[in-house]
Design a protein around this nucleic acid. Sequence first.
DNA 1: GCTTTGACGTATG
DNA 2: TCATACGCCAAAG
Length: 116
Amino acid sequence: MHSAIDDAHARVYAAIAAIPRGRVASYGAIAARAGLPGRARLVGRLLGEVPEGMVLPWYRVLRASGHIAMPPGSRGFREQCWLLRAEGVEVKNGRVALSAFGLDADLDRALWGAPD
DNA sequence: GCTTTGACGTATG
DNA sequence: TCATACGCCAAAG
């Protein structure tokens, strides 16, 4: 059925899928682009509960600091590092320089459009 | 139906 | 850079 929650989930997934290859975005940015400002935790929750069969570039989502949001050394952590590097994203000490690989205002506008 | 938990964020010191 | 506090809210127990 159509609940506001399911609708929000769909927008979050869409925002994540829209992150271009070789770039990254923070949880807060994804939430904002999904029309849910301040709901970064919801994005994190969703990534941990991705429906079976759904493919998403989950590894392109990082914390606002640029750090990978998983326990260092964990399997997900290593997988995320590997996937990002495979796209040309430089990962150093579990961290990515958002100033270099994050979405700029210009690129953000080109991709998702800017709110008037 | 209340409490705890969580792949978060910003502010403050 | 690290620690603490508070806001946020859906899901699980």
